[in-house]
């Protein structure tokens, strides 16, 4: 998985700790989006044909194609369901958070 990681945010204690002017470091993530999800996508790797359609259309870029099989970054997946809706072979299903992989 090759996705930006969350870094721990240190609260500024002194005036010098605040960024100068209105500038700040790019690509600085301090919070995940995983708490937004009601349903989480699960890729059925046996059915997946690696067409990369889900990778292409994920609005959050949470699907990683660098490995052998496609992986979902659950830290930043919001559970919108675009991937499952667009998958042409039906290899992605949405499972309710809190339930197991079979939805129970």
């Amino acid at each position: 998985m090759d996705r930006p990681k969350v870094v721990k945010y240190k609260e500024p204690e002194r005036a010098e700790d605040y960024p100068v002017g209105a500038t700040f470091k790019a690509g600085h993530l301090v919070q995940t989006n995983s708490g937004w999800r009601t349903f989480r996508p699960i890729i059925d790797q046996d059915k997946c044909i690696k067409c990369l359609r889900c990778f292409l259309v994920c609005p959050d870029g949470a699907i990683d194609k660098s490995g052998e099989s496609l992986e979902i970054d659950y830290d930043f997946c919001k559970g919108c369901g675009v991937c499952a809706h667009e998958c042409k072979v039906g290899a992605i299903r949405m499972v309710k958070e809190g339930a197991d992989e079979d939805g129970r």
């Binding site: 996705r3 930006p4 690509g27 919070q31 995940t32 989006n33 609005p59 959050d60 930043f76 559970g79």
Partner: peptide
Amino acid sequence: YGHKACAG
């Protein structure tokens, strides 16, 4: 990455 846009 990691933006707070609406899901979808």
